[in-house]
Each structure stands twice: as structure tokens, then as C-alpha cells.
């Protein structure tokens, strides 16, 4: 195995230019695809807490009797997608408002009466948090005679999810495209090397070398090209991430957002994929060259 590895490394240095071009191509492909992956990781990170907290406020009409409120709570609990229902009396709502307003809370002290209505705070189950799910629940609540108004600020989450889904699809398509392009380029590199060394291959066959003996260093070359290209691509992405993270972490949508780099399993997956690219490119060229 060691002698194959030594031959592979020697060949890589002998064909420096072609191999450098191949490594750069793989690195660029990995960079583009992993940039997409990084985007998804961070969008998911951003959306997830909001998804967890999808809630609706159902405001009650004035003078709903207390016993009706209990019955109403049970009824809402039985509705599609509802995870948790909490009754928020108008006094409690006013206290919360005062707390939220802090310095401006004095504005509320002169009120003759509490302008806020009683309300139900409804948290949705995570499995029902689609745009359609929210819509159905909102319509169901509005249809109740005791409910004055339903409010939920996260309608746009569904839309964002649709857009992210679209991006994800584009990411997969691009990933597949770059994978194929990289395989094609590695295959061509190995083909060029094989063409330059066809006499050597022929001599090796004449002296009794098996095809496996001849092919092994090429496969190792392919794996090394893929691994180096993949590592460079990930390295470039990390450098760009570090440069961008410091600027972006300040208030995206006015929120504190901590950008995250790709998790270790994703990095390992990308490296394995780029090694697979090298191996597959070799396999295609060697198969053609040896006419099997």
C-alpha cells in the first residue's frame, strides 16, 4: 500500500500543473456548494426559535361570562394544531404591557379603565406550524362567537420557509451539477496523465503487472486530489465566514444573530463527497482506458 501511495504522490508532483488546476476546480465547487449549506444552516438557526414560538392571540369580546371562558378554553384546546392554551385576563395583560413599556408606563397610569380585552394565548404544536395550519386555526378561532379578533405575527414564517425550500432545491441542483462537473474534470485530468504515460502502462502490462497494480496509484491520486480540493474549499469558506461573521452578527432584522459555521458531520460529509469525486473521476477514466 505504501509503495502505491509513494508512486501516487510522485505522480502528483510530476504533473503539478494539471493537478493544481484540478484541485482548484474541486475547491471552488466545494466552496460554492458548502456556501449554500452554510446559508441553510444559519437560516434554519434563525427560523427555528420563531417556529418554536409560533403563537396566536385570540382576543375576546367584552363581557364574556367566566364559565364561558372555561368552556371556550377547552374548545380551543381541541382545535387542530393547538399545543397549549393560556387564558390572559385583561388585568394581567395590562401589567405585562406596563412592564414592556418600562419608562413610558406612566402613560398608562392615567387611564380611567383598562382598554385591553381578555385573551387566549395559543401556542401551536410544531408539527402543525405550516402556513396552512396557522390559517386553518385562525379561521376556526375567528368563527367562534366569543372571539373578537385573532392576531398572529408569524404569517411570514411560512413564506420564508417556502423561499428557503426553493433555495434548498436550487442548492441540491447546484450541488449535483458541481459534483458532475468536478467528476468530469478529475476524469479528464487522469485521462491526460494516462495518455502521457500510456507507454509506461503498456510496459507494466508486458512485465506482468496486473491492472489492479497499475490502477491503484491513480485511485490514490484521485482520492488525494478530492481531499485536498475539499479541504481547500472548506478552508476558503471558513475564512470568508470568519470575515463576515463579525459584521453580520450585529442586528440582522434588528435581532442579535449569531452566525454558525457548518457542523462537523457536514464538514466530514463534504470532504467525503469531494474524495468520492476524485475516486469516481479516476474510475471513469481508468475504465475507459483499460477498455472494460
Amino acid at each position: 500500500m505504501l509503495k502505491f501511495y509513494r508512486r501516487a504522490v510522485k505522480d502528483l508532483f510530476e504533473n503539478r500543473f494539471v493537478n493544481t488546476v484540478t484541485v482548484i476546480t474541486i475547491a471552488l465547487s466545494v466552496l460554492i456548494v458548502s456556501a449554500f449549506a452554510l446559508f441553510f444552516v444559519n437560516v434554519e438557526e434563525l427560523i427555528n426559535p420563531w417556529k418554536q414560538g409560533v403563537r396566536m392571540m385570540a382576543y375576546l369580546k367584552d363581557n364574556v361570562a367566566e364559565d364561558r371562558i372555561v368552556a371556550l378554553e377547552r374548545r380551543i384546546e381541541g382545535m387542530y394544531g393547538v399545543g397549549q392554551v393560556t387564558f390572559v385576563p385583561r388585568q394581567e395583560a395590562l401589567q405585562k404591557l406596563k412592564k414592556t413599556m418600562k419608562r413610558q408606563s406612566s402613560l398608562l397610569t392615567n387611564l380611567n379603565e383598562n382598554p385591553l380585552p381578555d385573551a387566549f394565548e395559543i401556542r401551536m404544536r410544531t408539527d402543525a406550524q405550516s402556513e396552512d395550519g396557522m390559517e386553518v386555526l385562525a379561521q376556526g378561532l375567528t368563527a367562534l362567537p366569543e372571539i373578537e379578533e385573532v392576531e398572529y405575527g408569524q404569517q411570514w414564517i411560512g413564506r420564508i420557509q417556502s423561499v428557503v425550500g426553493l433555495f434548498r432545491l436550487a442548492g441540491y441542483a447546484l450541488g449535483a451539477l458541481f459534483f458532475m462537473a468536478s467528476v468530469f474534470i478529475v476524469a479528464n485530468t487522469i485521462r491526460l496523465v494516462l495518455y502521457a504515460r500510456r507507454q509506461e502502462v503498456e510496459i507494466m502490462r508486458l512485465v506482468g503487472a496486473t491492472d489492479g497494480f497499475i490502477k491503484a496509484p491513480f485511485y490514490i491520486e484521485g482520492l488525494i486530489l478530492g481531499a485536498v480540493g475539499g479541504a481547500l474549499g472548506i478552508g476558503a469558506l471558513l475564512a470568508m465566514y470568519l470575515a463576515a461573521a463579525a459584521n453580520v452578527s450585529q442586528g440582522l432584522f434588528g435581532l442579535i444573530v449569531d452566525l454558525r459555521f457548518l457542523p462537523t458531520p457536514a464538514i466530514m460529509g463534504i470532504l467525503i463527497c469531494s474524495m468520492l469525486v476524485g475516486w469516481l473521476g479516476c474510475y471513469i477514466s481508468l475504465r475507459q482506458f483499460f477498455g472494460q
Binding site: 509503495k3 510530476e14 507507454q199 509506461e200 510496459i203 507494466m204 508486458l206 512485465v207 506482468g208 503487472a209 496486473t210 497494480f213
Partner: peptide, 19 residues
């Protein structure tokens, strides 16, 4: 039919290596 990029030693060693 010697491999021009390999030394004399490497050319000869190819046979026992292949075996």
C-alpha cells in the same frame, strides 16, 4: 521499452514489485 522517467533501478524493480 524502458520507462524514461524511472531510474535504472526502478525500471528493473518494476518486475518483482508487480509480482
Amino acid at each position: 521499452k524502458l520507462i524514461p522517467t524511472k531510474t535504472v533501478f526502478e525500471n528493473v524493480a518494476l518486475v518483482p514489485e508487480a509480482a
